[in-house]
Measured scan of single mutants.
Amino acid sequence: ETGKELVLALYDYQEKSPREVTMKKGDILTLLNSTNKDWWKVEVNDRQGFVPAAYVKKL
């Protein structure tokens, strides 16, 4: 879809709370919100949640 910003997972991340999502290094995720410098909201496999901003980079 146009207008979607994507990020690349630089590291594996295992969710530690229900508000977070698990990702694997190399995953491409849809970026939903990056206003917080530490935690970015992403969508992966129809799930939305937060990942550490340092673990992903914008494509």
Rank of each mutant, 00 (worst) to 15 (best):
D12H: 06
G49W: 04
G49F: 08
W39V: 03
K58C: 09
K57C: 13
E43S: 10
L8W: 07
R47Q: 07
D27W: 11
E15M: 12
L29F: 06
Q48P: 06
V42Y: 01
L59P: 03
S34P: 06
V21N: 04
Y55K: 06
E43H: 07
V44C: 10
V44A: 14
E43D: 07
V51C: 03
V44I: 15
D12L: 02
T22N: 07
A9R: 01
F50P: 00
V42C: 06
L6Y: 15
E15K: 14
D27K: 03
K37A: 13
E1C: 14
Q48S: 11
K4Y: 14
W39K: 02
L31C: 07
S17K: 07
K24G: 05
W39T: 02
E43A: 11
P52W: 03
L31P: 00
K57A: 13
D38C: 13
E15C: 11
V7P: 00
E1W: 05
N36H: 12
I28E: 03
L29T: 01
L8R: 08
N33F: 06
A53R: 12
T30Q: 11
V44W: 07
Y55C: 11
S34R: 07
Y13L: 02
E15Q: 13
F50L: 09
E43V: 10
R47M: 07
K37E: 10
V44P: 00
E15N: 07
G49N: 01
D38Q: 11
N33S: 12
V7F: 07
L8I: 15
E20F: 06
Y55F: 12
S17W: 06
K16R: 14
V51S: 00
V42W: 00
M23I: 15
A54L: 11
D46M: 10
V56T: 04
V42Q: 00
G49C: 03
K16T: 13
Y11W: 09
N33Q: 10
K16L: 09
K37D: 11
L59Y: 09
E20M: 05
Y11N: 09
P52R: 03
L32T: 05
R19G: 15
G49Q: 02
E5G: 11
L8G: 03
Q48K: 12
L29W: 03
V44G: 12
K16V: 07
A54T: 11
V51Y: 00
T30G: 08
K25M: 08
L32S: 03
L8P: 00
L59N: 04
K37L: 09
T35Q: 12
N36R: 09
E20V: 04
K25C: 08
L32I: 15
K24A: 09
N45E: 11
E43R: 10
I28N: 03
V7R: 02
S17V: 04
I28Q: 04
L10W: 04
T30R: 14
N45T: 09
K57I: 15
V56I: 07
N36M: 09
M23H: 01
I28L: 09
T30E: 11
K25S: 07
D46K: 11
G26C: 08
Y13S: 01
Y13W: 12
K25D: 02
D46E: 11
E15R: 13
A9K: 01
N36S: 09
E5K: 09
Y13K: 00
K58S: 08
E43G: 08
D38W: 14
L59T: 06
A9M: 02
M23P: 00
A9D: 00
D46G: 15
K37C: 10
Y11I: 10
E1A: 13
D38G: 09
P18C: 09
Y11P: 01
E15F: 06
V56H: 00
T35D: 15
Q14I: 14
V42L: 03
G49D: 01
G26H: 05
D46V: 06
A54P: 08
K4R: 14
T30H: 09
S17H: 12
E43Q: 13
T35P: 04
E5C: 13
S17Q: 09
G26Y: 06
Q14V: 15
K41L: 15
K41D: 03
E5T: 13
W40N: 01
T22K: 04
E1Q: 13
E43W: 07
L32E: 02
A9H: 01
G26P: 00
W39R: 03
K16H: 09
K57V: 15
K24H: 11
R19K: 13
D38R: 12
N45R: 13
G26M: 03
K4V: 14
P52F: 02
L6C: 09
L32H: 06
G26Q: 02
Y13P: 00
Y55Q: 04
L59F: 09
K25H: 06
V7W: 07
M23Q: 02
D12E: 05
N45I: 11
W40P: 01
D12W: 03
N36W: 06
K24V: 09
K25N: 04
K4G: 10
F50K: 02
R47A: 06
Y11R: 15
M23R: 00
L8E: 14
L8K: 08
E1H: 13
W39G: 00
L59S: 04
Y55A: 11
E15A: 15
L29Q: 01
